[in-house]
Amino acid sequence: MPLLDVRQVRGGYGESDILKGVDLAVEPGEIVVIIGPNGAGKSTLMKAVFGLVPLRFGIVAVDGEDITNAKPETHVRRGLSYVPQERNVFPSLTVQENLEMGAFARRDDWSAAMARVFEIFPPLAEKRGALAGSLSGGQRQMVAMGRALMQEPKLLMLDEPTAGLSPKFMDLIFDRVVAINRSGTAILMVEQNARQALAIAHRGYVLAMGQNRFTDTGRGILENPQVAEMFLGG
């Protein structure tokens, strides 16, 4: 049974649908990457999965349980964590406080989770007392991902985690994504850097105009000449 199962979802913000019947599945332990041109509905799909964009039609299920249009809090309790693309840290809280907020829904001892976050992102340990608002873009992205990892999710959802980062930080983030995945967390990621993302992905989805265009293994999509021509810039 897939961890996340999305069937034929339609919906969007206002009158017109941005998603026009999209399917998506993530198996436990997978890295799944969604690529596609601007306006394809990639970010909207992520938000819709997390209950932030209303769906008119279709089903979102986690572990076989229907959570379509449920509140974001429900998703957190079901083991999903979501890192939006922008404004993804609490700027007037310290790094440590940002991480603590990530564990807000947990009632158990989360100190091991925090130690693990510092292990994955060593710079955060040094900056734990600094205000998140004072950090660089790359460090903020680490805080945002760290915050999401604090509840030790089954599925980590990342919306363009490398947008606006320098190539050095970009490589680092991809490297950390793989490391997080190796410890058993499934990853669903929207990425502009399609080649790099597909290279680490188990499977990939190509979205266009709010619909599925191609679905294959990461490598399969990379090597698909049609995809290459249309979406990977030759």
Partner: peptide
Amino acid sequence: TRTGKAMRAMSDNPDLARITGIP
């Protein structure tokens, strides 16, 4: 306190607070 920090977090960014699982 946990609630106090959550309050500052929500004051910073209410949408992110919801996503984070803050009630």
